[in-house]
Design a protein around this nucleic acid. Sequence first.
DNA 1: CGTTGAATTCAACAGTCGATGACTTAAGGA
DNA 2: TCCTTAAGTCATCGACTGTTGAATTCAACG
Lengths: 200, 200
Amino acid sequence: MARTGRRPGGGSGTQEAILDAARAAFSESGYDGATIRGIAGKAGVDPALVHHYYGTKEQLFVAAMELPFDPSSVLPAILEPGLDGIGERIVRLMVTIWDSAGDYNPFAALLRSAMTQEKAATMFREFATRAIFANVVKAIDADRPELRTGMVASQMAGLIMTRYLLKLPAMVQATPDELVAGIGPTLQRYLTAPLDLPSG
Amino acid sequence: MARTGRRPGGGSGTQEAILDAARAAFSESGYDGATIRGIAGKAGVDPALVHHYYGTKEQLFVAAMELPFDPSSVLPAILEPGLDGIGERIVRLMVTIWDSAGDYNPFAALLRSAMTQEKAATMFREFATRAIFANVVKAIDADRPELRTGMVASQMAGLIMTRYLLKLPAMVQATPDELVAGIGPTLQRYLTAPLDLPSG
DNA sequence: CGTTGAATTCAACAGTCGATGACTTAAGGA
DNA sequence: TCCTTAAGTCATCGACTGTTGAATTCAACG
């Protein structure tokens, strides 16, 4: 927070315009695909100005990746009501956010970039581990909390990937309610049900 | 089939060496990240030779993406035994293939490239739809077969993404048996259990 | 031997990228 | 008025890209 201090919504300042253009470009094309020239063009400024404000391309990337919402403020809303129905709450929140955010969201940029950029993958891994994993693991009241959280992450990553990035027709056409009803129970089981793991 | 006619294993011919290097490069860096010069270097040839054999970079990409196994020959092995235990069979097969294939496999290349390259995304979508989706959908003996198959795809995509591409520690450390026991039932439910969808 | 034809290399073109440094413009304070 | 400082532009550098056409090697054939 206290970030992007000026205007809450669009921001007409030059620096904010650059950041917005950067977010859009990184989200669409990933780190490598996005170009400083393209970002500057979309922001209506000279490419040199981007360097003037943010230094290197990598620094611009991390500046643009500042999340528009605070994970530590949305997580409690999911965890606090308790483990009952938590699976469906997770799916509904994620689908709601992504359906409304379009593609211009830092998560898409991070995911796309993390597929080919080792540094972006590390950023994503560390963020996911520190800001999300740790809190979820603590809330789990069962054995193997890390494995359970990992499986939840895998299902959520797959949902996002197939619906919003790869755009598989079957997943794009599904309604939010259908996804909640279909995938919610999976997360619920990952988080609370006995696992029946191989003896070891 | 009838492809890469020469040697079944490594192939020492120059063209095969180029294809191998191309697969490795595309798998590691995606379509944009991989360079013809880098591929030629790894294959020990001049960059111009790559063009001589395969034309453009895009043609080299599709040539390198010829799958090392035939989906229509491995799918029956999963579907034929019937729906009983099909969830666990799917997970075990996927994990086995990917654990042994390392990163040098066309699927990784397609997935990585599809995240940022629209053309690669279309390739992947069409392949998945035609070679896998269609057959699985036919085998399902329940309502909403497309949605069910889509959810299976989402969980499998997420498993592959978190374990092999993003390398989330919790998913990397899990043993194949643990993944089969944990995720198998999810697929089983997606494919066979009543869905309890919202009335619509 | 000379010749053919394929396999392969060399050198270069045209383009794009990130980045740099010098330059201009405008504003504000003393 | 002079100075300082930030905002912004311009031209350019060096590196790397995909691609091309001419030149070269080299084995096989007659």
